[in-house]
Amino acid sequence: MFKNRQGIKGWFYLRGANFERYLYTLHRITGFILVLYITVHIILMGSRAFSETAWRSVLSFIGITFEDSIYHINPVVHFFEYLLVIAILFHAFNGIRLILTELGFFIGRPRRPEYPYVSYSIARPRPLMIFLMIIMFFFAVIGIYEFFLIH
């Protein structure tokens, strides 16, 4: 049975690692951040259940202020919101790749290792990884427009 001898340190042991290994580490880091975020998010956004005043004061606390029928977001908060969206998009699209490969899709049949010993279990799903990362990148780019150019 596989033993994780290095523990969490093993995530960062990347010497000689392929690109998917970097994505794995990034997936875990973004996952950890997102669990912390969702905890705070559920508690803060729950203020809407109490009153409009509570809702506004919580949003004001995180840098969103209301003025007539619109609201303004603190630029620093807005920037971190963008980073958060990127982390979510990365985790979501990389997660779909991990689910598909975990279930055996896009891996192909096992084959005899022959020179030059290309790892087909990594090479075969690579187009899927590139495709999903391109979609993520597309959302990130239109996010620049949404977050920074039209506000």
């Binding site: 689910i99 279930l103 959302f139």
Partner: peptide, 24 residues
């Protein structure tokens, strides 16, 4: 865990687009 990841992929996209990309 895998199944929940697959379901929230779609719910999350909907949530992100609705809440964070409102103008587009």
């Amino acid at each position: 865990h895998l199944f929940s990841g697959f379901v929230i992929f779609f719910l999350l996209l909907w949530h992100i687009l609705y809440m964070h990309y409102p103008v587009i």
